[in-house]
Design a protein around this nucleic acid. Sequence first.
DNA 1: TTGTATGCGTTATCAT
DNA 2: ATGATAACGCATACAA
Lengths: 336, 336
Amino acid sequence: MSDRISVRDVAAAAGVSVGSVSRVLNASGYASADLRQRVLDAVERLGYEPDFTARHLRTGHSRTISYLLPNIANPFLAAHLSEVERLTQQAGYSLLVGSSERPARDRELVAFFENRRLEGIIASPSYEYPDKAECPFTRTSLPTVVVDRDLGDAFDSVLVDHFNGLRQAMEYLLALGHRRVALFVSGDNLRPGREKLRGYRAALAAAGLPYDPALVYMPGSWLESSRHRMAEMLQLDQPPTALIALGTQLLSGAVHVVREQGLEIPRDMSVIGPGTMETLELMYPPLTALRYNFQSSARSTVQLMLERIAAATPPAPRRVMVAWDLVVGASCARAY
Amino acid sequence: MSDRISVRDVAAAAGVSVGSVSRVLNASGYASADLRQRVLDAVERLGYEPDFTARHLRTGHSRTISYLLPNIANPFLAAHLSEVERLTQQAGYSLLVGSSERPARDRELVAFFENRRLEGIIASPSYEYPDKAECPFTRTSLPTVVVDRDLGDAFDSVLVDHFNGLRQAMEYLLALGHRRVALFVSGDNLRPGREKLRGYRAALAAAGLPYDPALVYMPGSWLESSRHRMAEMLQLDQPPTALIALGTQLLSGAVHVVREQGLEIPRDMSVIGPGTMETLELMYPPLTALRYNFQSSARSTVQLMLERIAAATPPAPRRVMVAWDLVVGASCARAY
DNA sequence: TTGTATGCGTTATCAT
DNA sequence: ATGATAACGCATACAA
């Protein structure tokens, strides 16, 4: 059963040496047409396929890259991961997934990736290492492409333009006459949250409106109660007339409370949410949503990685910006 | 830079032979306390870590398993994958993901996994190979655990109990007085769809009600229009008064049309949907949903796999059933 | 143009 | 108890 055929078997069957077999298969060095044909025949006949591990040990190429991310179950990340997997496979690489929600695990995984001689790391860690000396990705020599995180400009980065996405959404709401907009976005400890807040505030400032922290909810970690915060906001003297909630859970919790209080969307509350496939149609009226192109983002990610792997000398770090689009549904109305 | 330290370096530093280093590190064979200590010190001092690839080549253990699935972006699959990844990592294994939506790609991936000497395959393919001779998983000698597919009883399987899930949901609706229930589930070409249909029909039969194909929508592949089908159903002489839609897209499309026609949930249409995190709260009134435990399902999957890998002689195939729970929300009402 | 021999970094099988 | 050495399966420098 464990009679795997090796180069030796092929060589014997073809009546040539192992070196010749290898040379033919890798198109390295010379080989006469005759010898070449005999080898190819034998390979075909025996169904030989070079052992990946042995080749890896010899050449140093593992043809495998890894994707380190906080949580595969997050719809945004899953969509991106899915595309990345497709493209890496297409390029002849395998994709190893590693999920990590804390720095210690980041370090473990990076050490693990190095030990396995992976060829690159796509990193979207759950911590941004303000102290660069502690950043596991700075310390590794593996080609790294950072996805939507601020890890300094030593890395190739694919960044989502949260800033302008939020500005766009806010300008849309402000144009509808809204002056008090609630903002529900994930963690201010990571780039996506920070940039969204920046965009939100920039739009307010540009319109000459004050920034009110009481209208902002940015849970640092998972599963805090967005229901509770929305309930609080509705109790304010001047409650929000619009809501931007960019996360399925954040949105669902907030919207639940809004409706529970007998408020109607969009009449009493305008809503902008995340543009993942599901949410777009699940709500009624159809959600006005911020959406970005996973496919193009994944394409950039993989392309940067492959270029960096192939490069003889490491290229200067590049950064790619991915834009959000505002897809107008029917969940926003003019402020009364 | 590429000055990786090897056993030889450690051996030299400790003043012992490479064999001794290996023996100490693998706790195989004898080693005096003194030698043992010297080796451990040297390892510590040099920061040595055995190269995974070389070890793999020598021992045959790749400590890697793969998960073959149709589509990572599917929320159900992503949730399951996420748990499986966590558990495999925890057990010291890496997880390679491979997505495939057609038999030819299944075969490619299996060949690829064999070539890389992975230790096992978790398979949830997009085709069930009625002709077993064509099934790539039958032909491979790699330990295989099948997830929610009917690939015959030669494999360990973790199966979701769609049959009883649907029976449960139907009994609930029938008890509320509904007699015409629309069913929107994915493909009848795979076990999940087939079993759901069986459960649906069993419940109807038990209640002495006729089965009407005009109320059933089971798209074979993605993205057909559930909106269109729902619109048709609402035109029937006797339109459905309840809907079971088990898929985020199926649900959102159908519900969209229902509301568009001015029907109210649950007054004019009772709805039961899929119990993924997002959907549960996103709808208003809160969705009554069928839900199953990803974690327990993932735990079974990984456990079966690890046992099979560890077993000296392959155990008889086992099958684990995972139950659905009906989580009652407020999207169902008594039939008028 | 082709064959031989060495090494990749381990582990495991021998002697000692 | 420990050390020398072969072997895992391949690629390649070198000899022929």
